[in-house]
Design a protein around this nucleic acid. Structure first.
Length: 557
RNA sequence: UGGGAUAUAGCCAAGUCGGUAAGGCAGCGGACUUUGACUCCGUCAUGCGCAGGUUCGAGUCCUGCUAUCCCAGCCA
């Protein structure tokens, strides 16, 4: 499209790949994967990983797989596997025919485990979960070896086969790697490789009653798929020795390399699946795709575009330091993208009626509005002016400060795409004293595009014709402001101002808008149409993001 | 003296063999403007967690500290 090639940001993972390529490691192949567990909806943090993995494959002429890490049946569901594919596709990435499931490899993994047992590198342990926990030691003290650690390979193999055959109850036995109970790395203290679970798996049903643990399944899945660079987040750094151990134990080749990077954090929001789930389950939000949610589906419904999200992921970079990205960066990206795509239209969120007292009896011919001054290809549309219009209540001040450029008694402003008007009279409600109406005169010489009035005004207002206006629901969103208590119990509390619903008046052309269309309401920001089909196609606009407002900023000072 | 990792501006982040601190977001000042938007121009680290050392020269190398994050699931 554009030729201004955006400089592709460099980062440490590319340095590693470049080095590997130079040494002809992996025969010059680059093969990555995005490996979500289907236990929830994808969020913007996953988008970072998706863009990284698929982006790297793209850039190095390699491949990227989509693989479900579905090794824990009790947490997983087909609802999630479907939403994940939809979201990855929507973001603009294509795994082609490489859609895999760790559960596809259960048999291979099982056979590998038998080999491990025969090689005396794994054993069946009869300790209870509680006993294993107690003998694991602490961060500062070494663990104790299980009394079952040294039983014969034959006995372990027999027990393991019987585990698979369903002869034991959940929790009765596990398969453990025989590594080192004295290791300073907790993950190496004879980690559990297989546990018994009779829960139905969303794909394999009841075919299996033993399931591999992440640390065992992940390196094998990567190896089976010929992954060269297995990119994951920082908390798995301590697991890397186990990742390598699993593949090295039987000298398994190829040997993918695990590389860790820092997960995304955003100011004023929360990325924890636990907290997001809580919002959904308590009904604090309307669902995983509520426009307030940082989920991909929430952002999509809010009106974010895949282009904006990908641009964001490029801009934030990839590194190993825990960081919190300012949400202003995301907001910048969506403004930047919508700037050329969204039609500029007029909507009044808090209407104040204006009567044009010198409006001619014969009426005024149709006006013309430019759909997007930054993108001439988007064309023009007709616009109706009339004797009565609505303007934004906050665009009128009876006693304005010096720098107020909008309407005030005796002042003149331009109505966007239309005429210059002058405020002649302020009409109040007799009882409450509230301003209910403004009486203005218009200057017929000042018509937009053919202004011969010679007037110069500082302010331009947006407006809608009372006769033609279409009522619409407008939803304004604030940040989530969730408190993450960190540990288990933490109750997530939603910012009460996170959604404000207004009854607004919008210009008539919007009556035909489609679900998902994006617009810029002049001065109010970018909005996305979210048609409520339940309520007979009621027009709902989600505000994606506001415009930068230097006037509001001035007032705050 | 458990182990692993990280530290460059308000935020994110480049910085390959040591050669004199990219870029973006936010901010600030100004120009322009029929969106107080957009755009444009200018500005924003004598400084790289701290303290020493090596060197003609250190964000990069060495030594010693400090702070923060992760790890004791039969979760991923």
């Amino acid at each position: 499209m554009t030729n201004d090639a955006k400089p592709v940001p460099s980062h440490f993972i590319k340095n590693i790949i470049n080095e590997d390529l130079k040494n002809n490691k992996n025969d010059g192949r680059v093969h990555t994967r995005f490996p979500p567990e289907p236990n929830g909806y994808l969020h913007i943090g996953h988008a970072k990983s998706i863009c990284l993995n698929f982006g790297l494959a793209d850039e190095y002429n390699g491949l990227c797989n989509l693989r479900y890490d579905d090794t824990n049946p009790i947490k997983e569901d087909v609802e999630y596997v479907e939403s994940i594919q939809e979201d990855v596709r929507w973001l603009g990435f294509d795994w082609e025919d490489r859609l895999y499931y760790a559960s596809d490899y259960f048999l291979q993994m099982y056979e590998y485990a038998e080999e491990l047992i025969k090689a005396d590198k794994a054993y069946v342990c009869d300790l209870s979960a509680e006993e294993i926990r107690q003998t694991r030691g602490t961060l500062k003290e070494p663990g104790k070896e299980s009394p079952y650690r040294n039983r014969s390979s034959e006995e372990s193999l027999d027990l393991f086969r019987r585990m698979r055959a369903g002869e034991f109850k959940e929790g009765e036995r596990v398969l453990r790697a025989k590594i080192d109970m004295m290791s300073p790395n907790m993950n190496m203290r004879d980690p559990v490789l297989y546990r018994i679970s009779y829960a139905a798996h969303h794909r394999t049903g009841t075919e299996w009653c033993i399931y591999p643990m992440y640390d065992y399944a992940h390196p094998l899945s990567d190896a089976y798929e010929g992954i060269t660079h297995s990119i994951c987040t920082l908390e798995f750094e301590d697991h890397r020795p186990l990742y390598d151990w699993t593949l090295d134990a039987l000298n398994y080749q190829p040997h993918p390399q695990q590389i860790e990077f820092a997960r995304l954090n955003l100011t004023n929001t929360v990325m924890s699946k636990r907290l997001l789930r809580q919002l959904v389950e308590t009904g604090a939000v309307d669902g995983w795709d509520d426009p307030r949610m940082p989920t991909i589906s929430g952002l999509r419904r809010r009106g974010y575009t895949p282009e904006a999200i990908r641009d964001f992921c490029d801009r934030i970079g990839v590194a190993k330091s825990n960081s919190v990205v300012d949400i202003a960066m995301l907001e910048y990206c969506i403004r930047e993208d919508l700037k050329f795509k969204a039609s500029r239209v007029m909507g009044v969120l808090n209407p104040l009626k204006v009567v044009i007292t010198n409006y001619p009896e014969e009426g005024i011919p149709e006006l013309t509005a430019e759909n997007n001054p930054e993108n001439a290809d988007m064309g023009y549309r007709p616009l109706q002016f009339s004797r009565e219009i609505f303007i934004e209540r906050e665009d009128f001040m009876e006693d304005p400060p010096k720098k107020f450029f909008r309407l005030a008694p005796g002042r003149e402003v331009r109505l966007k795409y239309a005429f210059i008007i002058k405020c002649e009279d302020v009409i109040r409600d007799e009882k409450t004293g509230e301003i209910v109406e403004l009486h203005c005169t218009y200057d017929p010489q000042s018509r937009s595009g053919q202004d011969v009035s010679g007037k110069k005004v500082k302010g331009t207002l947006h407006w809608v014709s009372v006769d033609h206006a279409v009522p619409a629901e407008v939803r304004l969103y604030d940040h989530l402001y969730l408190q993450d208590e960190g540990d288990e119990a933490g109750e997530a509390e939603l910012n009460p101002d996170s959604r404000i619903i207004l009854e607004a008046m919008v210009e008539p052309s919007l009556a035909e808008a489609h679900h998902g269309d994006t617009f810029q309401f002049l001065r109010h920001g970018y909005f996305c149409v979210d048609l409520d089909t339940q309520k007979g196609k009621k027009l709902i606009f989600n505000r994606i993001v506001s415009l930068r407002d230097t006037w509001a900023k001035m007032q705050q000072k």
